[in-house]
Write a protein that binds this DNA or RNA. Structure first.
Length: 259
DNA sequence: CCAGACGTTGTT
DNA sequence: GTCTGG
DNA sequence: CCAGACGTTGTT
DNA sequence: GTCTGG
């Protein structure tokens, strides 16, 4: 699955990679979002659920896609509390069309999350080990594109207009969830699920096109092809959200005396 | 009809 | 809001 | 996702 | 064990 992210690629570089056609318009967009969300465009090596993430939405064909900050973890319009979001950080692609919360978003709530990697925890021991042993044996991986190029993740977003958890909502709460699918060849050895990766500029444009119906773009949802992603063994520093620095994605070498 | 869930992962 | 379970 | 808390009363 | 916080 996908429960922790990185974004250290400069945001302008990310936008130019997937939307070169709007090259001269992006600096203003970035300036605007920095005003409302200071710090959101700085490098982040440990983005956790509930935190703001950067997403792209497009409201009409041939208009500039919009850069937005959203809370990670979907808070549906009917929710009276933020609690539900803890279990809606990912949405299984296999059941998107059945789930009443997700179905309307397939046509009206597609967006793309800006990231350049995510963390995964490999379970190194089988079910015969105790829960304690299993927890202690987890190996952290940072999964990213070769050369650490930007990554576009297929997501759904929605808006909640209620006074959540007793706090009067001044503004509607925008939130997002990352679609997951079976792991592809690159990451299967680490974990059996992965986020849906939009491969290139064309895939991103199709996913975002607001006039396109789900049936015509659902082919974009599936495991990434071999060669798309690369898992790098890293230390357990990323396990704690208090740790934030670039050292979290540094490759960890195997220590020979353990083998 | 009303009440209650609405979600995923991993673990058991 | 909308679906499922009883 | 993992880490860390998990509770109340009265007093400062 | 289960929930909350980040």
């Amino acid at each position: 699955m996908c429960g922790r992210l990185t974004l250290h690629t400069p945001v302008l570089d990310w936008l130019l990679e997937f939307f070169p056609a709007y090259a001269n318009l992006w600096p203003a967009s970035i300036g605007a979002i920095i005003k409302t969300h200071p710090g959101i465009c700085q490098a982040r090596y440990n983005i956790a659920p509930t935190q703001p993430v950067l997403v792209i939405r497009q409201f009409a064909a041939d208009t500039q896609p919009q850069l937005e900050a959203m809370r990670w973890g979907l808070v549906p319009p009917w929710a009276d509390s933020l609690k539900i979001a803890y279990s809606m950080i990912n949405a299984r692609c296999e059941t998107l069309e059945e789930k009443p919360t997700y179905r309307p978003l397939l046509d009206q709530g597609r967006c793309v999350l800006l990231a350049d990697g995510y963390y995964e925890w490999k379970q190194m021991l089988g079910p015969e080990a105790s829960a304690k042993e299993q927890a202690a044996s987890k190996q952290t991986y940072w999964i990213h594109r070769p050369e650490s190029k930007p990554l576009a993740l297929a997501c759904l977003w929605t808006s909640n207009h209620k006074d959540l958890d007793g706090n009067r909502a001044q503004e509607p709460l925008l939130s997002t969830t990352i679609i997951t699918t079976d792991a592809g060849a690159d990451t299967r050895s680490v974990h059996d699920r992965m986020p849906v990766v939009l491969q290139d500029e064309t895939a991103v444009a199709r996913w975002l096109s607001s006039q396109a119906h789900w049936q015509s773009i659902k082919d974009l949802v599936g495991p990434a092809g071999a060669g798309t992603l690369q898992p790098t063994r890293v230390s357990s520093k990323a396990n704690s959200v208090r740790n934030q620095g670039p050292e979290l994605i540094a490759p960890e070498l195997y220590t020979p005396d353990l083998f």
